[in-house]
């Protein structure tokens, strides 16, 4: 059911035009943060105002939209944003990654490999990767302009000195196209390798900070590391308890108050597809 009284995809045409201009610039300069006039959206900052505006700007009538939050299609934010666009734009929505043309996400990149022609839209809370180290915006812009990123390694050094390994597990800084340092939004570093040379166009929107940036298809995205402490992704001791997958990002689920827990795929679509195809994890086998 579409709601009448709104322009297609909620935002007015001039705003979408402004956003598209900013996005074109962002695609032209991979990893560079382009300022844009962020609008008031009918949801609070931090809930995906940046992603929603980017999605609204790029959505067409023939698009098929998938929205995930923490990898799941069924969480409150994902359901609400999907319904928002179903009502204001009347576009088709889906849970299936291969069918989607636009995928708005928070925290995850789907386990199913993306294809050429698809667009990922990331909701970004903090677009500035240097923010924690240098709070002054004027200074961070200058550092980006001069590609002066040495002290990002100070943070990684500090991690190794303190914990013995690079302890940054999400929003892990990446260098895009050998030029701009970029915050990949709070995706786990498990997903960082998926950014590299991805066939899909990847757009990032930060509503509160009023910035968009992009990684065009087939662009080099390199996670920062040291020669003797190379970048590595998270690993788990056990496969997914529901579908038995050993190659996906797992969430810990607490089962009771005596230490019972299980690990399951955070990507709910991937997990249910595998279960439908006959794969079963330890929890499913026990129940059977």
């Amino acid at each position: 059911m579409t709601t009448s009284g709104y322009n297609f995809a909620y935002l007015d045409e001039q705003t979408k035009r402004m956003l598209r201009r900013a996005l074109l610039k962002a695609v032209a300069i991979p990893g560079y943060q382009v300022p844009f006039g962020s609008r008031e959206m009918p949801l609070p900052y931090g809930w995906g105002t940046g992603g929603i505006q980017v999605t609204a700007a790029i959505l067409g009538t023939n698009d098929v939209l998938k929205v995930i939050d923490q990898g799941s299609d069924d969480t409150v934010n994902a359901v609400n944003i999907r319904r928002f666009f179903a009502r204001t734009a009347g576009v088709a929505t889906t849970n299936r990654t291969p069918e989607a043309t636009v995928i708005q996400t928070r925290h995850r990149i789907p386990e199913t490999p993306l294809a050429a022609g698809q667009i990922m839209v990331y909701q970004v809370p903090e677009p500035e990767p240097l923010h924690r180290l240098e709070p002054r915006e004027a200074v961070t812009r200058k550092l980006h302009a001069l590609a002066d990123y040495g002290f990002m390694h100070v943070k990684l050094y500090e991690d190794i000195a303190r914990y013995g390994h690079i302890a940054t597990t999400y929003d892990y800084p990446v260098l895009v196209n050998d030029r701009y340092l970029m915050a990949p939004s709070p995706i786990p570093k498990f997903d960082n390798p998926k950014l590299n040379h991805s066939p899909a166009l990847q757009l990032f929107g930060a509503g509160r900070e009023k910035r968009v940036y992009a990684v065009p298809p087939y662009t080099k995205v390199e996670s920062l590391d040291f020669e003797d402490h190379p970048f590595s992704v998270q690993q788990w001791d056990a496969p997914c308890a529901l579908c038995g997958a050993s190659d996906s990002f797992l969430d810990e689920v607490v089962l009771d108050d005596v230490g019972g827990r299980m690990f399951v795929c955070s990507d709910s679509e991937y997990c249910s597809n595998r279960q439908a195809a006959g794969h079963a994890g330890s929890a499913v086998k026990e129940a059977a």
């Binding site: 002066d148 040495g150 002290f151 390694h153 100070v154 943070k155 050094y157 500090e158 190794i160 000195a161 303190r162 590391d225 040291f226 020669e227 003797d228 402490h229």
Partner: peptide
């Protein structure tokens, strides 16, 4: 940040990428 990171910062800023 630690003393080591303080001393090492210039090295990292000039391209040193070997933690050890």
């Amino acid at each position: 940040v630690s003393a080591g990171a303080n001393v090492g910062e210039r090295l990292m800023a000039t391209g040193a990428r070997h933690y050890g």
